[in-house]
Design a protein around this nucleic acid. Structure first.
Length: 105
DNA sequence: TGTTTGACGGACA
DNA sequence: CTGTCCGCCAAAC
């Protein structure tokens, strides 16, 4: 009954939510980093898609996810920047310094 | 069924 | 630094 034919996206979900939930306040993580940690390297795009499907009232720290260049690529950048600022993460020109804020498990 | 799109990433000019 | 190209894969056309 367990479906042997699950899509990568479906199998990516569980570990993805766990790793995302592990990112502490005041730190950020990249899409590709989450994909690798979840066991699906090269699947950064799927991570983005899954985050996009999260319910608006989710408790997961989706705002701590930026791209590999530290840029904010979320559709509602303003909302994300606000949340990052609330955690004392400095955002300039739509971008954060991975050098200073990237989380390393 | 073929093509385009997207909260991406890395290599390269 | 910027822009282009290609790999990646599921959803939307």
């Amino acid at each position: 009954m367990t479906q042997p034919l699950m899509t990568a996206t479906q199998r990516l979900q569980e570990p993805l939510w766990q790793w995302l939930n592990a990112v502490p306040a005041g730190r950020v993580i990249t899409y590709g980093q989450l994909a690798r940690l979840a066991g699906y390297p090269q699947q950064a795009r799927l991570v983005g898609r899954m985050l996009a499907d999260l319910p608006p009232d989710t408790r997961l720290p989706w705002h701590r996810v930026v791209n590999a260049q530290g840029r904010i690529t979320h559709p509602d950048a303003a909302r994300q920047v606000t949340r990052l600022s609330d955690e004392d993460i400095h955002v300039t020109q739509g971008r954060v310094s991975l050098r200073h804020y990237q989380w390393q498990p």
